[in-house]
Amino acid sequence: MNDTATATATAGRTATSHPLPSVLALGWSRAAVETKMFFRERDAVIFTFAFPIILLVIFGAIFSGRLEGSPITVSQLYTAGLIGAGVMSASFQNLGIGIAVDRDDGTLKRLAGTPLPRSAYFVGKILSVLLVALLEVAILLAIGVAAYDLTLPTELGRWVTFAWVFVLGITGSALLGIAVSSLPRSAKSATAVISMPFVVLQFISGVFIPFSELPEWLIRISSLFPLKWMCQGFRSVFLGDAGAALELTKSYELDRVALILAAWAVGGLVLCLTTFRWKSRRDG
């Protein structure tokens, strides 16, 4: 056997005995890196993690009474709404700003030139976002239960509703965040470009202001986006039948919630595939 054949056989045995890590394994490793980097950035933590918690404490301190004709307090209503805002903050805002920064500082370009599969980068990002979102929901629920008499559901069906609203909501929001990461022209403008519309969306999606106080044209605009439906789904879980009377249609419309959130998940994927760029504009 000549030297070339021997080298080929040796390489084949090595590849067989030491297979390359799977995309999921590489994504998990990348997720650990992304999570450490996230918690080291104070601005990122404030905007995507602490912001909803701070708002809940502030609004809970200002508005402490019950809603007229309802056993539900204003603080409980805010808790349910801010859970939806927290999930979208951790996914849409976190990914949109983080990927824009990675693109601008050359991280994406360098990763594209390494053996790391491109899909592993997104797996790492999404796993990190999932962890942050779960932590944020847990803390918001703990504050709601401890300080605002929020009652956790005991029926399995309501927790099933929570699960699919969370999964569909975070999927659509994450994909939308990846898509809009191409909008900022630089890392410096990323926070303003992505955070400003998200803050506006919270005010028109029933997070801070009840729909009964909004003009009809704003309600129609908010109904086009996933945040309104995420908050509605979470209200059905944590406010129960008593909260349904507060909705515009006197119903949580969970079938419509599922349909629109699923549509955003599909639409977000299409936007990602058609708009995502690995290079910044200055790289051509």
Rank of each mutant, 00 (worst) to 15 (best):
F203D: 04
F166A: 03
K125C: 10
N94P: 06
L224R: 07
K279P: 03
G86F: 01
V132S: 01
V165F: 11
G233W: 06
L246C: 04
G124D: 06
E213Q: 13
L24M: 05
E213N: 13
L150F: 07
E41K: 14
P71Y: 11
T16H: 14
L24D: 00
G172W: 06
A265P: 12
V129W: 01
A80W: 02
I62T: 11
P215E: 07
D241E: 15
G60I: 01
V145D: 03
P184F: 06
A244H: 08
R103A: 01
L175E: 00
I72W: 09
S251F: 13
I46P: 01
W217G: 02
L224F: 13
L227A: 13
V199Q: 09
G81C: 01
F225V: 04
S205G: 10
T274H: 07
D102E: 13
L152F: 08
A133S: 11
G96S: 04
Y148S: 02
E155H: 15
L201Q: 10
G268Y: 10
E216M: 12
F38P: 05
F59H: 09
V129A: 06
F38E: 03
S91P: 09
T154K: 07
F122R: 01
I97R: 05
L248E: 13
V132E: 01
A262F: 15
V101E: 04
W264I: 07
V237W: 02
T151H: 12
I209G: 12
G172P: 09
W159S: 06
F162E: 02
R110N: 13
G267M: 06
W159Y: 13
T107L: 09
I83H: 03
G106A: 08
L183A: 08
L82E: 00
V160Y: 14
A245M: 07
E68A: 14
T249I: 00
F198E: 03
S182D: 02
V145I: 04
R235H: 15
F51I: 02
T6V: 05
R281P: 01
Q202C: 13
F63Y: 15
A25F: 10
D104Q: 10
G27F: 10
S212I: 09
A25G: 10
L141Q: 02
V33H: 14
V257H: 10
P153K: 11
T73F: 12
F234H: 02
M37K: 12
L261M: 11
E253T: 03
L20V: 05
A258R: 14
V180F: 11
T191V: 04
P215V: 05
L273C: 13
D43Q: 10
R13H: 15
E213D: 11
S195V: 04
F47W: 11
V266P: 12
